[in-house]
Design a protein around this nucleic acid. Structure first.
Length: 495
RNA sequence: GGGCCAGUAGCUCAGCCGGUAGAGCAGCGGCCUUUUAAGCCGUUGGUCGAAGGUUCGAUUCCUUCCUGGCUCACCA
Protein backbone atom coordinates (compact mmCIF):
# COMPACT_ATOMS: atom_id res chain seq x y z
CA UNK A 1 0.00 0.00 0.00
CA UNK A 2 1.32 3.39 -0.81
CA UNK A 3 0.67 6.17 1.63
CA UNK A 4 -2.24 8.48 1.15
CA UNK A 5 -0.84 11.66 -0.18
CA UNK A 6 -2.39 15.06 -0.02
CA UNK A 7 -4.19 14.75 -3.34
CA UNK A 8 -5.84 11.51 -2.34
CA UNK A 9 -6.80 12.90 1.05
CA UNK A 10 -8.41 15.90 -0.62
CA UNK A 11 -10.47 13.62 -2.80
CA UNK A 12 -11.53 11.51 0.15
CA UNK A 13 -12.59 14.70 1.81
CA UNK A 14 -14.75 15.57 -1.19
CA UNK A 15 -16.21 12.08 -1.04
CA UNK A 16 -17.25 12.76 2.56
CA UNK A 17 -18.86 16.03 1.55
CA UNK A 18 -20.78 14.27 -1.21
CA UNK A 19 -22.11 11.76 1.29
CA UNK A 20 -23.19 14.62 3.54
CA UNK A 21 -25.05 16.21 0.63
CA UNK A 22 -26.96 12.95 0.28
CA UNK A 23 -25.29 12.09 -3.03
CA UNK A 24 -24.36 8.47 -3.73
CA UNK A 25 -20.93 8.71 -5.36
CA UNK A 26 -21.29 5.20 -6.78
CA UNK A 27 -24.81 4.81 -8.19
CA UNK A 28 -25.99 1.83 -10.20
CA UNK A 29 -26.72 2.87 -13.75
CA UNK A 30 -27.09 5.69 -16.19
CA UNK A 31 -29.10 5.85 -19.41
CA UNK A 32 -27.20 7.55 -22.15
CA UNK A 33 -28.65 8.37 -25.51
CA UNK A 34 -25.46 9.10 -27.46
CA UNK A 35 -21.73 8.67 -27.46
CA UNK A 36 -19.47 11.69 -27.87
CA UNK A 37 -18.70 10.73 -31.45
CA UNK A 38 -22.37 10.34 -32.38
CA UNK A 39 -23.09 13.85 -31.18
CA UNK A 40 -20.28 15.28 -33.24
CA UNK A 41 -21.17 13.21 -36.31
CA UNK A 42 -24.88 14.00 -36.08
CA UNK A 43 -24.58 17.62 -35.01
CA UNK A 44 -26.84 18.93 -37.79
CA UNK A 45 -29.71 16.77 -36.56
CA UNK A 46 -28.97 17.04 -32.86
CA UNK A 47 -28.35 20.78 -32.60
CA UNK A 48 -30.58 22.22 -29.84
CA UNK A 49 -31.88 18.72 -29.03
CA UNK A 50 -31.63 17.04 -25.65
CA UNK A 51 -29.10 14.24 -25.21
CA UNK A 52 -27.45 12.35 -22.41
CA UNK A 53 -23.83 11.26 -22.37
CA UNK A 54 -21.56 9.59 -19.84
CA UNK A 55 -17.84 9.55 -19.44
CA UNK A 56 -14.74 10.52 -17.53
CA UNK A 57 -13.89 14.17 -16.86
CA UNK A 58 -10.61 14.86 -18.65
CA UNK A 59 -10.28 18.61 -18.36
CA UNK A 60 -11.86 21.30 -16.26
CA UNK A 61 -12.03 25.05 -16.73
CA UNK A 62 -14.07 26.82 -14.12
CA UNK A 63 -14.90 30.49 -14.55
CA UNK A 64 -16.72 31.69 -11.51
CA UNK A 65 -20.29 30.57 -11.85
CA UNK A 66 -19.80 28.67 -15.10
CA UNK A 67 -17.47 25.95 -16.32
CA UNK A 68 -16.30 23.96 -19.28
CA UNK A 69 -15.03 20.43 -19.07
CA UNK A 70 -14.45 17.53 -21.44
CA UNK A 71 -15.99 14.13 -21.03
CA UNK A 72 -14.22 11.14 -22.50
CA UNK A 73 -16.03 7.99 -23.50
CA UNK A 74 -14.97 5.00 -25.56
CA UNK A 75 -15.40 6.90 -28.81
CA UNK A 76 -13.77 10.20 -27.97
CA UNK A 77 -14.37 13.42 -26.12
CA UNK A 78 -17.08 16.02 -25.95
CA UNK A 79 -17.14 19.37 -24.19
CA UNK A 80 -19.75 20.20 -21.59
CA UNK A 81 -20.75 23.73 -20.67
CA UNK A 82 -22.30 24.18 -17.28
CA UNK A 83 -23.56 27.29 -15.64
CA UNK A 84 -25.00 27.88 -12.24
CA UNK A 85 -28.19 29.59 -13.46
CA UNK A 86 -29.08 26.54 -15.50
CA UNK A 87 -28.33 23.66 -13.15
CA UNK A 88 -29.15 25.40 -9.86
CA UNK A 89 -27.24 25.80 -6.63
CA UNK A 90 -27.28 22.17 -5.51
CA UNK A 91 -25.85 20.75 -8.68
CA UNK A 92 -23.33 23.53 -8.89
CA UNK A 93 -22.18 22.50 -5.43
CA UNK A 94 -21.89 18.95 -6.76
CA UNK A 95 -19.89 20.22 -9.73
CA UNK A 96 -17.45 21.98 -7.40
CA UNK A 97 -16.75 18.66 -5.66
CA UNK A 98 -15.82 16.99 -8.95
CA UNK A 99 -12.29 16.27 -10.10
CA UNK A 100 -10.60 15.30 -13.30
CA UNK A 101 -10.99 11.54 -13.47
CA UNK A 102 -14.51 11.41 -12.06
CA UNK A 103 -17.11 9.65 -14.16
CA UNK A 104 -20.32 11.59 -14.68
CA UNK A 105 -23.51 11.53 -16.66
CA UNK A 106 -24.88 14.66 -18.32
CA UNK A 107 -28.31 15.59 -19.63
CA UNK A 108 -28.31 18.65 -21.79
CA UNK A 109 -28.79 20.37 -25.11
CA UNK A 110 -26.38 20.11 -27.99
CA UNK A 111 -24.97 23.44 -29.14
CA UNK A 112 -21.90 25.03 -30.63
CA UNK A 113 -19.81 27.45 -28.61
CA UNK A 114 -18.73 30.86 -29.75
CA UNK A 115 -15.40 29.40 -30.80
CA UNK A 116 -17.14 26.67 -32.75
CA UNK A 117 -16.76 23.56 -30.61
CA UNK A 118 -19.71 21.21 -30.52
CA UNK A 119 -20.68 20.97 -26.86
CA UNK A 120 -23.47 20.07 -24.48
CA UNK A 121 -25.20 22.73 -22.46
CA UNK A 122 -25.65 20.89 -19.20
CA UNK A 123 -29.10 20.85 -17.60
CA UNK A 124 -28.56 17.97 -15.25
CA UNK A 125 -25.37 16.55 -13.84
CA UNK A 126 -25.03 13.19 -12.17
CA UNK A 127 -21.96 11.73 -10.50
CA UNK A 128 -21.47 8.12 -11.59
CA UNK A 129 -18.17 7.33 -9.93
CA UNK A 130 -15.86 9.38 -7.75
CA UNK A 131 -12.19 9.00 -8.55
CA UNK A 132 -9.90 9.01 -5.53
CA UNK A 133 -6.55 8.96 -7.26
CA UNK A 134 -5.18 11.79 -9.44
CA UNK A 135 -4.78 10.97 -13.10
CA UNK A 136 -1.76 12.31 -14.97
CA UNK A 137 -3.00 15.47 -16.62
CA UNK A 138 -2.30 15.56 -20.31
CA UNK A 139 -3.09 18.83 -22.01
CA UNK A 140 -3.37 19.27 -25.70
CA UNK A 141 -4.28 21.84 -28.29
CA UNK A 142 -4.98 21.86 -31.98
CA UNK A 143 -2.37 23.71 -33.96
CA UNK A 144 -2.32 23.83 -37.75
CA UNK A 145 -4.88 21.06 -37.82
CA UNK A 146 -2.88 18.57 -35.79
CA UNK A 147 -2.87 17.82 -32.12
CA UNK A 148 -0.04 19.02 -29.91
CA UNK A 149 0.24 17.12 -26.63
CA UNK A 150 1.93 18.63 -23.61
CA UNK A 151 3.79 16.54 -21.07
CA UNK A 152 2.37 13.18 -22.19
CA UNK A 153 2.24 10.37 -19.66
CA UNK A 154 5.29 8.61 -21.01
CA UNK A 155 7.14 6.71 -18.28
CA UNK A 156 7.18 3.22 -19.79
CA UNK A 157 7.36 1.43 -16.50
CA UNK A 158 4.30 3.26 -15.17
CA UNK A 159 2.48 2.85 -18.47
CA UNK A 160 2.97 -0.93 -18.50
CA UNK A 161 2.33 -1.46 -14.81
CA UNK A 162 -0.74 0.77 -14.77
CA UNK A 163 -2.04 0.12 -18.25
CA UNK A 164 -5.48 1.31 -17.13
CA UNK A 165 -4.01 4.79 -16.68
CA UNK A 166 -2.13 4.56 -19.98
CA UNK A 167 -5.39 3.70 -21.73
CA UNK A 168 -7.27 6.57 -20.14
CA UNK A 169 -4.80 9.29 -21.02
CA UNK A 170 -3.13 8.05 -24.20
CA UNK A 171 -5.64 7.73 -27.05
CA UNK A 172 -3.05 6.24 -29.42
CA UNK A 173 -2.59 3.33 -27.02
CA UNK A 174 -6.31 2.69 -27.11
CA UNK A 175 -6.13 2.75 -30.90
CA UNK A 176 -3.46 0.07 -31.01
CA UNK A 177 -5.57 -2.33 -28.99
CA UNK A 178 -8.70 -1.59 -30.99
CA UNK A 179 -6.71 -2.45 -34.10
CA UNK A 180 -5.45 -5.60 -32.42
CA UNK A 181 -9.02 -6.68 -31.86
CA UNK A 182 -9.97 -5.82 -35.44
CA UNK A 183 -7.02 -7.76 -36.81
CA UNK A 184 -8.09 -10.88 -34.94
CA UNK A 185 -11.71 -10.40 -35.98
CA UNK A 186 -10.60 -9.85 -39.57
CA UNK A 187 -8.56 -13.02 -39.59
CA UNK A 188 -11.39 -14.97 -38.07
CA UNK A 189 -13.78 -13.71 -40.74
CA UNK A 190 -11.31 -14.73 -43.41
CA UNK A 191 -10.92 -18.19 -41.89
CA UNK A 192 -14.64 -18.65 -41.50
CA UNK A 193 -15.18 -18.10 -45.23
CA UNK A 194 -13.53 -21.47 -45.64
CA UNK A 195 -15.77 -23.05 -43.03
CA UNK A 196 -12.86 -24.02 -40.87
CA UNK A 197 -13.78 -24.96 -37.33
CA UNK A 198 -12.52 -22.78 -34.50
CA UNK A 199 -11.48 -25.01 -31.61
CA UNK A 200 -9.82 -25.00 -28.20
CA UNK A 201 -7.14 -27.49 -27.24
CA UNK A 202 -5.37 -28.06 -23.91
CA UNK A 203 -3.16 -25.38 -22.45
CA UNK A 204 -2.07 -27.70 -19.64
CA UNK A 205 -0.30 -30.59 -21.28
CA UNK A 206 1.40 -33.70 -19.89
CA UNK A 207 3.97 -33.41 -22.69
CA UNK A 208 4.83 -30.26 -24.58
CA UNK A 209 5.52 -30.21 -28.28
CA UNK A 210 5.04 -28.52 -31.61
CA UNK A 211 7.93 -26.10 -31.27
CA UNK A 212 11.46 -25.83 -30.00
CA UNK A 213 11.35 -23.94 -26.73
CA UNK A 214 11.66 -24.39 -23.01
CA UNK A 215 8.33 -24.79 -21.24
CA UNK A 216 6.82 -23.58 -18.01
CA UNK A 217 6.25 -26.45 -15.62
CA UNK A 218 3.44 -26.73 -13.14
CA UNK A 219 1.90 -29.39 -10.96
CA UNK A 220 -1.57 -30.80 -10.69
CA UNK A 221 -2.37 -31.64 -7.08
CA UNK A 222 -5.23 -34.08 -7.45
CA UNK A 223 -3.50 -36.10 -10.13
CA UNK A 224 -0.14 -35.51 -8.48
CA UNK A 225 1.52 -35.02 -11.83
CA UNK A 226 3.73 -32.62 -13.67
CA UNK A 227 2.03 -30.52 -16.32
CA UNK A 228 3.49 -28.14 -18.87
CA UNK A 229 1.98 -24.95 -20.22
CA UNK A 230 1.81 -25.42 -23.95
CA UNK A 231 4.51 -24.01 -26.19
CA UNK A 232 2.35 -24.64 -29.28
CA UNK A 233 -1.06 -26.02 -30.24
CA UNK A 234 0.22 -28.07 -33.14
CA UNK A 235 0.11 -31.68 -31.98
CA UNK A 236 -3.43 -31.42 -30.62
CA UNK A 237 -4.76 -29.68 -33.70
CA UNK A 238 -3.30 -32.41 -35.89
CA UNK A 239 -5.04 -34.98 -33.72
CA UNK A 240 -8.27 -33.19 -34.67
CA UNK A 241 -7.43 -33.47 -38.36
CA UNK A 242 -6.90 -37.19 -37.77
CA UNK A 243 -10.29 -37.20 -36.06
CA UNK A 244 -11.90 -36.06 -39.28
CA UNK A 245 -12.19 -32.30 -39.06
CA UNK A 246 -10.79 -31.07 -42.36
CA UNK A 247 -9.97 -27.54 -41.31
CA UNK A 248 -9.35 -26.39 -37.74
CA UNK A 249 -7.88 -23.25 -36.26
CA UNK A 250 -7.22 -21.89 -32.82
CA UNK A 251 -6.33 -18.46 -31.50
CA UNK A 252 -4.55 -19.11 -28.26
CA UNK A 253 -1.78 -18.21 -25.92
CA UNK A 254 1.44 -20.16 -25.85
CA UNK A 255 4.00 -19.99 -23.07
CA UNK A 256 7.74 -20.15 -23.52
CA UNK A 257 10.13 -19.98 -20.63
CA UNK A 258 12.68 -17.74 -22.26
CA UNK A 259 14.08 -14.25 -22.16
CA UNK A 260 12.00 -11.11 -22.45
CA UNK A 261 12.82 -8.40 -24.95
CA UNK A 262 10.98 -6.21 -27.37
CA UNK A 263 10.05 -9.17 -29.57
CA UNK A 264 9.36 -11.72 -26.83
CA UNK A 265 6.89 -12.00 -24.00
CA UNK A 266 6.69 -15.29 -22.05
CA UNK A 267 3.00 -15.46 -22.86
CA UNK A 268 2.05 -14.65 -26.43
CA UNK A 269 -0.74 -15.22 -28.90
CA UNK A 270 -0.65 -17.47 -31.87
CA UNK A 271 -3.14 -18.51 -34.51
CA UNK A 272 -2.62 -22.03 -35.76
CA UNK A 273 -4.47 -23.46 -38.74
CA UNK A 274 -4.50 -26.97 -40.23
CA UNK A 275 -6.19 -27.86 -43.51
CA UNK A 276 -6.59 -31.37 -44.87
CA UNK A 277 -5.64 -32.25 -48.45
CA UNK A 278 -3.55 -29.09 -48.90
CA UNK A 279 0.20 -28.55 -49.02
CA UNK A 280 2.53 -25.70 -48.21
CA UNK A 281 2.27 -24.14 -51.64
CA UNK A 282 -1.46 -23.73 -51.12
CA UNK A 283 -0.77 -22.40 -47.64
CA UNK A 284 1.57 -19.71 -48.98
CA UNK A 285 -1.17 -18.29 -51.13
CA UNK A 286 -3.60 -18.59 -48.27
CA UNK A 287 -1.24 -16.75 -45.93
CA UNK A 288 -0.50 -13.82 -48.22
CA UNK A 289 -4.20 -13.43 -48.92
CA UNK A 290 -5.20 -13.61 -45.27
CA UNK A 291 -2.58 -11.13 -44.09
CA UNK A 292 -3.00 -8.64 -46.92
CA UNK A 293 -6.79 -8.72 -46.77
CA UNK A 294 -6.78 -8.36 -43.02
CA UNK A 295 -4.46 -5.36 -43.32
CA UNK A 296 -6.74 -3.88 -45.93
CA UNK A 297 -9.78 -4.42 -43.76
CA UNK A 298 -8.19 -2.84 -40.69
CA UNK A 299 -6.03 -0.11 -42.24
CA UNK A 300 -7.74 0.39 -45.57
CA UNK A 301 -4.50 -0.26 -47.39
CA UNK A 302 -2.09 -3.04 -48.27
CA UNK A 303 0.84 -0.63 -48.21
CA UNK A 304 1.83 0.03 -44.63
CA UNK A 305 4.36 2.14 -42.79
CA UNK A 306 6.52 0.36 -40.27
CA UNK A 307 9.38 2.10 -38.44
CA UNK A 308 9.96 4.51 -41.32
CA UNK A 309 9.82 1.77 -43.93
CA UNK A 310 7.10 1.29 -46.49
CA UNK A 311 6.00 -2.29 -46.78
CA UNK A 312 3.74 -3.55 -49.53
CA UNK A 313 1.66 -6.52 -48.48
CA UNK A 314 -0.01 -6.93 -51.86
CA UNK A 315 0.24 -10.55 -53.07
CA UNK A 316 2.06 -12.38 -54.42
CA UNK A 317 4.93 -12.27 -51.98
CA UNK A 318 8.43 -13.24 -52.99
CA UNK A 319 9.33 -16.94 -52.61
CA UNK A 320 12.96 -17.57 -51.71
CA UNK A 321 14.33 -21.01 -50.86
CA UNK A 322 16.49 -20.86 -47.74
CA UNK A 323 19.74 -21.95 -49.39
CA UNK A 324 19.24 -19.50 -52.24
CA UNK A 325 18.65 -16.75 -49.74
CA UNK A 326 21.88 -17.56 -47.95
CA UNK A 327 23.70 -17.70 -51.26
CA UNK A 328 22.23 -14.38 -52.29
CA UNK A 329 23.29 -12.55 -49.13
CA UNK A 330 26.59 -14.30 -48.28
CA UNK A 331 27.72 -15.49 -51.68
CA UNK A 332 28.20 -18.98 -50.26
CA UNK A 333 26.37 -22.08 -51.46
CA UNK A 334 25.91 -24.26 -48.43
CA UNK A 335 23.26 -26.52 -49.91
CA UNK A 336 25.58 -29.50 -50.28
CA UNK A 337 27.61 -29.03 -47.11
CA UNK A 338 27.82 -31.57 -44.31
CA UNK A 339 27.98 -30.55 -40.66
CA UNK A 340 31.76 -30.12 -40.53
CA UNK A 341 31.87 -27.84 -43.58
CA UNK A 342 28.89 -25.89 -42.26
CA UNK A 343 30.63 -25.40 -38.95
CA UNK A 344 33.73 -24.04 -40.69
CA UNK A 345 31.67 -21.78 -42.91
CA UNK A 346 29.86 -20.39 -39.90
CA UNK A 347 33.18 -19.72 -38.19
CA UNK A 348 34.45 -17.97 -41.33
CA UNK A 349 31.36 -15.78 -41.26
CA UNK A 350 32.07 -14.85 -37.65
CA UNK A 351 29.47 -17.05 -35.98
CA UNK A 352 30.69 -18.96 -32.93
CA UNK A 353 29.05 -22.33 -33.50
CA UNK A 354 28.60 -24.25 -30.26
CA UNK A 355 29.38 -27.93 -30.10
CA UNK A 356 25.82 -28.92 -29.26
CA UNK A 357 24.56 -27.34 -32.50
CA UNK A 358 23.58 -29.70 -35.28
CA UNK A 359 23.74 -28.68 -38.93
CA UNK A 360 20.17 -27.39 -38.84
CA UNK A 361 20.97 -25.02 -36.01
CA UNK A 362 24.08 -23.76 -37.78
CA UNK A 363 22.14 -23.05 -40.95
CA UNK A 364 19.49 -21.26 -38.94
CA UNK A 365 22.15 -19.08 -37.33
CA UNK A 366 23.66 -18.11 -40.67
CA UNK A 367 20.22 -17.30 -41.99
CA UNK A 368 19.23 -15.31 -38.93
CA UNK A 369 22.42 -13.28 -39.00
CA UNK A 370 22.85 -12.55 -42.70
CA UNK A 371 19.53 -12.95 -44.45
CA UNK A 372 16.53 -12.43 -42.21
CA UNK A 373 17.25 -8.80 -41.21
CA UNK A 374 17.52 -7.85 -44.89
CA UNK A 375 14.08 -9.14 -45.82
CA UNK A 376 11.98 -6.02 -45.41
CA UNK A 377 9.31 -6.68 -48.04
CA UNK A 378 7.17 -9.78 -47.43
CA UNK A 379 9.09 -12.90 -48.34
CA UNK A 380 8.39 -16.58 -47.96
CA UNK A 381 11.57 -18.38 -47.05
CA UNK A 382 11.03 -21.97 -48.13
CA UNK A 383 12.51 -25.44 -47.98
CA UNK A 384 14.36 -25.83 -44.72
CA UNK A 385 16.79 -28.61 -43.86
CA UNK A 386 15.09 -31.67 -42.46
CA UNK A 387 16.94 -31.52 -39.10
CA UNK A 388 15.42 -28.12 -38.30
CA UNK A 389 11.85 -29.24 -38.75
CA UNK A 390 10.91 -32.52 -37.10
CA UNK A 391 7.20 -32.14 -37.76
CA UNK A 392 7.38 -31.19 -41.45
CA UNK A 393 7.09 -33.45 -44.43
CA UNK A 394 10.12 -34.16 -46.57
CA UNK A 395 10.43 -32.13 -49.72
CA UNK A 396 8.97 -33.95 -52.71
CA UNK A 397 12.14 -33.26 -54.74
CA UNK A 398 14.88 -33.31 -52.12
CA UNK A 399 14.87 -35.64 -49.12
CA UNK A 400 17.36 -33.45 -47.22
CA UNK A 401 14.78 -30.68 -47.11
CA UNK A 402 11.28 -30.29 -45.82
CA UNK A 403 8.32 -28.45 -47.31
CA UNK A 404 8.28 -25.57 -44.92
CA UNK A 405 8.06 -21.80 -45.16
CA UNK A 406 8.30 -18.81 -42.90
CA UNK A 407 6.72 -15.50 -43.91
CA UNK A 408 9.24 -12.76 -43.14
CA UNK A 409 8.28 -9.10 -43.05
CA UNK A 410 10.38 -6.17 -41.88
CA UNK A 411 13.20 -8.57 -41.04
CA UNK A 412 11.12 -10.65 -38.64
CA UNK A 413 9.33 -13.91 -39.05
CA UNK A 414 5.65 -13.60 -38.38
CA UNK A 415 4.81 -17.25 -38.80
CA UNK A 416 5.78 -20.77 -39.69
CA UNK A 417 4.12 -23.35 -41.90
CA UNK A 418 4.61 -26.67 -43.57
CA UNK A 419 3.24 -29.61 -45.40
CA UNK A 420 2.60 -31.65 -42.28
CA UNK A 421 4.48 -34.88 -41.77
CA UNK A 422 1.88 -37.66 -41.82
CA UNK A 423 4.14 -40.69 -42.21
CA UNK A 424 4.09 -42.21 -38.71
CA UNK A 425 7.33 -44.13 -39.17
CA UNK A 426 9.19 -41.08 -40.45
CA UNK A 427 7.72 -39.06 -37.58
CA UNK A 428 9.02 -41.60 -35.05
CA UNK A 429 12.50 -41.35 -36.55
CA UNK A 430 12.40 -37.57 -36.41
CA UNK A 431 11.34 -37.64 -32.78
CA UNK A 432 14.16 -40.03 -32.03
CA UNK A 433 16.64 -37.72 -33.72
CA UNK A 434 15.34 -34.94 -31.47
CA UNK A 435 15.76 -37.15 -28.41
CA UNK A 436 19.38 -37.70 -29.44
CA UNK A 437 19.93 -33.95 -29.65
CA UNK A 438 18.37 -33.66 -26.21
CA UNK A 439 20.74 -36.31 -24.90
CA UNK A 440 23.59 -34.19 -26.29
CA UNK A 441 22.42 -31.28 -24.18
CA UNK A 442 20.02 -29.38 -26.41
CA UNK A 443 17.36 -28.43 -23.90
CA UNK A 444 15.05 -27.12 -26.58
CA UNK A 445 14.96 -30.30 -28.64
CA UNK A 446 11.48 -31.72 -28.96
CA UNK A 447 10.20 -34.63 -26.93
CA UNK A 448 8.74 -37.84 -28.28
CA UNK A 449 4.97 -37.95 -27.98
CA UNK A 450 3.83 -41.59 -28.05
CA UNK A 451 0.13 -40.73 -28.16
CA UNK A 452 0.67 -38.41 -31.10
CA UNK A 453 2.47 -41.20 -32.94
CA UNK A 454 -0.40 -43.56 -32.15
CA UNK A 455 -2.80 -41.01 -33.61
CA UNK A 456 -0.69 -40.66 -36.75
CA UNK A 457 -0.67 -44.44 -37.14
CA UNK A 458 -4.43 -44.34 -37.59
CA UNK A 459 -3.76 -42.14 -40.61
CA UNK A 460 -3.70 -38.39 -41.16
CA UNK A 461 -4.63 -36.98 -44.57
CA UNK A 462 -2.11 -34.83 -46.39
CA UNK A 463 -2.34 -31.60 -44.44
CA UNK A 464 -0.98 -28.08 -44.55
CA UNK A 465 -0.39 -26.26 -41.27
CA UNK A 466 0.30 -22.63 -40.40
CA UNK A 467 1.11 -20.66 -37.28
CA UNK A 468 0.93 -16.86 -37.23
CA UNK A 469 2.42 -14.86 -34.37
CA UNK A 470 -0.43 -12.49 -33.64
CA UNK A 471 1.59 -10.11 -31.50
CA UNK A 472 4.19 -9.68 -34.22
CA UNK A 473 1.54 -9.19 -36.85
CA UNK A 474 -0.15 -6.57 -34.67
CA UNK A 475 3.21 -4.82 -34.14
CA UNK A 476 3.63 -4.70 -37.89
CA UNK A 477 0.16 -3.36 -38.60
CA UNK A 478 0.21 -0.80 -35.79
CA UNK A 479 3.80 0.34 -36.34
CA UNK A 480 4.75 -0.69 -32.80
CA UNK A 481 8.43 -1.13 -32.00
CA UNK A 482 7.93 -3.34 -28.97
CA UNK A 483 5.74 -6.34 -28.24
CA UNK A 484 4.90 -4.63 -24.95
CA UNK A 485 3.00 -2.05 -26.91
CA UNK A 486 0.59 -4.64 -28.29
CA UNK A 487 0.06 -6.72 -25.13
CA UNK A 488 -2.14 -5.07 -22.51
CA UNK A 489 -0.24 -6.39 -19.52
CA UNK A 490 3.29 -7.40 -20.52
CA UNK A 491 5.25 -9.48 -18.06
CA UNK A 492 7.05 -7.36 -15.45
CA UNK A 493 8.91 -7.99 -12.25
CA UNK A 494 6.71 -7.41 -9.22
CA UNK A 495 6.74 -3.86 -7.91
C1' G B 1 23.26 -12.93 -18.39
C1' G B 2 26.84 -8.68 -20.62
C1' G B 3 27.16 -3.31 -22.07
C1' C B 4 25.08 1.67 -21.97
C1' C B 5 21.36 5.00 -19.89
C1' A B 6 17.66 6.43 -16.38
C1' G B 7 14.96 6.67 -11.40
C1' U B 8 14.03 14.23 -7.88
C1' A B 9 6.32 16.69 -6.05
C1' G B 10 0.30 13.18 -8.60
C1' C B 11 2.41 13.92 -14.09
C1' U B 12 6.47 16.09 -17.33
C1' C B 13 11.19 17.73 -16.14
C1' A B 14 15.35 21.29 -14.17
C1' G B 15 19.14 21.24 -10.42
C1' C B 16 23.99 18.21 -8.72
C1' C B 17 32.74 19.89 -10.17
C1' G B 18 29.22 18.75 -1.98
C1' G B 19 26.34 23.45 1.97
C1' U B 20 19.54 19.13 3.55
C1' A B 21 15.62 21.14 -3.43
C1' G B 22 13.00 24.15 -8.02
C1' A B 23 9.64 24.99 -12.59
C1' G B 24 5.26 23.95 -15.59
C1' C B 25 0.78 21.34 -15.25
C1' A B 26 -2.54 19.18 -11.53
C1' G B 27 -4.27 20.38 -6.36
C1' C B 28 -5.95 24.09 -2.56
C1' G B 29 -7.86 29.50 -1.52
C1' G B 30 -9.58 34.17 -4.03
C1' C B 31 -11.60 36.90 -8.71
C1' C B 32 -14.04 35.55 -13.17
C1' U B 33 -21.56 33.04 -16.31
C1' U B 34 -19.08 30.89 -24.10
C1' U B 35 -13.62 28.88 -22.18
C1' U B 36 -10.32 25.56 -24.63
C1' A B 37 -2.55 24.27 -22.97
C1' A B 38 -8.63 29.76 -20.30
C1' G B 39 -6.60 33.93 -17.51
C1' C B 40 -4.99 36.82 -13.03
C1' C B 41 -3.43 36.79 -7.58
C1' G B 42 -1.96 33.73 -3.55
C1' U B 43 -0.55 28.84 -1.77
C1' U B 44 0.17 23.43 -0.12
C1' G B 45 2.94 19.42 -1.52
C1' G B 46 9.25 15.85 -1.61
C1' U B 47 12.50 10.39 3.93
C1' C B 48 15.80 13.52 -4.42
C1' G B 49 14.75 4.49 -6.01
C1' A B 50 17.14 1.59 -1.38
C1' A B 51 21.27 0.51 1.80
C1' G B 52 26.19 1.37 3.06
C1' G B 53 30.77 4.39 2.58
C1' U B 54 33.81 9.09 2.12
C1' U B 55 32.99 13.99 4.47
C1' C B 56 32.08 18.78 9.52
C1' G B 57 28.09 18.21 5.87
C1' A B 58 25.66 13.85 0.35
C1' U B 59 20.04 14.67 -4.04
C1' U B 60 25.19 15.74 -5.80
C1' C B 61 31.23 11.72 -4.98
C1' C B 62 32.17 6.07 -4.30
C1' U B 63 30.24 0.88 -3.64
C1' U B 64 26.39 -2.62 -3.62
C1' C B 65 21.42 -3.60 -4.51
C1' C B 66 16.31 -2.73 -6.61
C1' U B 67 13.27 -1.22 -10.85
C1' G B 68 12.86 0.18 -15.83
C1' G B 69 14.54 1.44 -20.94
C1' C B 70 17.78 0.59 -25.12
C1' U B 71 21.20 -2.95 -26.93
C1' C B 72 24.04 -7.69 -27.52
C1' A B 73 23.53 -12.90 -26.65
C1' C B 74 19.13 -16.96 -26.97
C1' C B 75 14.31 -17.33 -29.01
C1' A B 76 8.41 -16.69 -32.16
Amino acid sequence: MDELNQLILQRRDKLEKLHKLGINPYPYHFDRTHTSQEIIDQFQDLNEKGVSVAGRIMSNRQMGKAAFFHLQDMKGKIQVYLKKDEVGDTEFELYKLLDIGDIVGIFGKVFKTRTGEISIFCQKLELLSKSLRPLPIVKEKIEDDHKVVFDPFSDKELRYRQRYVDLVVNPHVREVFIKRSKIITGMRQFLDQYEFLEVQTPILQPLYGGATARPFVTHHNALDMKLYLRIADELYLKRLIIGGFEGVYEFGNDFRNEGIDRFHNPEFTQMELYVAYKDYAWMMEFTENMVSQTAHKVLGNMKIKFQNQTIDLTPPWKRLPLFEGIKEYTGIDISQMEEEALRNTAEDLGIAAENSWGSGKIIDEIFGEFVEPKLIQPTFITDYPVEMSPLAKKHRENPRLVERFEPIIAGKEIGNAFSELNDPLDQRERFEAQMNLRAKGDEEAQVLDEDFLRALEYGMPPTAGLGIGIDRLVMLLTDSASIRDVIFFPQMRPE
